[in-house]
């Protein structure tokens, strides 16, 4: 059996699907027992209380090819966000493999890189740098980022004085200026006021139009149909439907109607 792994190869080095997910599984502890059994883990390498665990994802396999827009559909807690994190490489699988063959721009926890004590200007350089841009590249895009987030008159204000909506706007502006060909979006579009949301949509459409690959988590039918051509429906960590966005969404609606009808 293959060793569980997450591989992110340098852009343009290999052929095949951009994202390759094989037999992916990840197991979580249901209770807080893990914290007690650490000593056990150190010596045996595993915890001995299997009763308290559940598989957030089980035997998930799919390929995404370049330029595809894929929506992840499912009820709360079905493993969508976990799957996105595994693809982003910020979580490690217990079974199976994730291979991502191109660079990734993760729109997950957008404001995570920002520091309240520094000014917005410093924060832009920092966050863009963390995602791999050099100082010159940031300078080149600085105006674009600032204009998009509409924060020009507040550039030298400490970041903690920003409203939460403005923080997210800045985060979105920075991450979407990255040149990475794969974009992962985790329900971040729901924030911000109406005008800004529309702006985000336009930016997303531009990115997709430019041939970026998109993996998209959302509960909004409208958003899913707008950006995605393909849908993967997850139920309790397993892939139930993988096909056109319409069909997959229909399967999801049918399931949730059945559940609420009971």
């Amino acid at each position: 059996m293959a060793v569980p792994s997450t591989t992110q190869t340098a852009p343009g080095t290999a052929e095949g699907p951009v994202i390759e997910v094989r037999n992916l599984g990840i197991e979580f502890q249901q209770n807080r027992k893990r914290r007690l059994s650490v000593r056990e883990m150190l010596f045996t390498g595993r915890s001995s209380s299997p009763a308290g665990t559940f598989w957030a994802l089980k035997d998930v396999s799919f390929d995404v090819s370049a330029g595809e827009g894929v929506g992840l559909i499912g009820a709360n807690g079905c493993g969508k966000s976990t799957l996105l994190r595994l693809v982003a490489g910020v979580m490690l699988p217990d079974t199976g493999t994730v291979t991502v063959r191109q660079g990734v721009a993760p729109l997950i926890e957008l404001t995570g890189g920002f520091l309240g004590d520094l000014t917005a200007r410093d924060n832009i350089y920092l966050t863009a740098g963390l995602h791999g841009l050099s100082r010159e590249q940031v300078e080149e895009r600085f105006d674009e980022i600032v204009d998009f987030a509409e924060v020009r008159d507040r550039l030298d204000t400490p970041f903690r004085h920003y409203s939460s909506g403005m923080q997210v706007r800045l985060g979105f502006a920075v991450v979407t200026t990255l040149d990475e060909p794969v974009i992962l979006v985790d329900e971040v579009l729901a924030v911000g006021d109406r005008a800004f949301r529309e702006k985000c949509y336009t930016r997303m459409e531009e990115l997709i139009g430019a041939g970026r690959t998109l993996l998209f988590v959302s509960h909004s039918e409208k958003d899913l149909k707008r950006f995605c051509t393909r849908g993967i429906y997850l139920r309790k960590g397993e892939v139930v439907a993988d096909g056109g966005i319409e069909e997959s969404f229909k399967a999801y609606v049918k399931d949730s109607d059945k559940a609420s009808g009971k």
Binding site: R85, A88, V90, V104, P106, I108, E109, G112, G113, L130
Partner: peptide, 9 residues
Amino acid sequence: SKLVRSTNL
């Protein structure tokens, strides 16, 4: 933790 969870370094 926020950065650990959102950047793949």
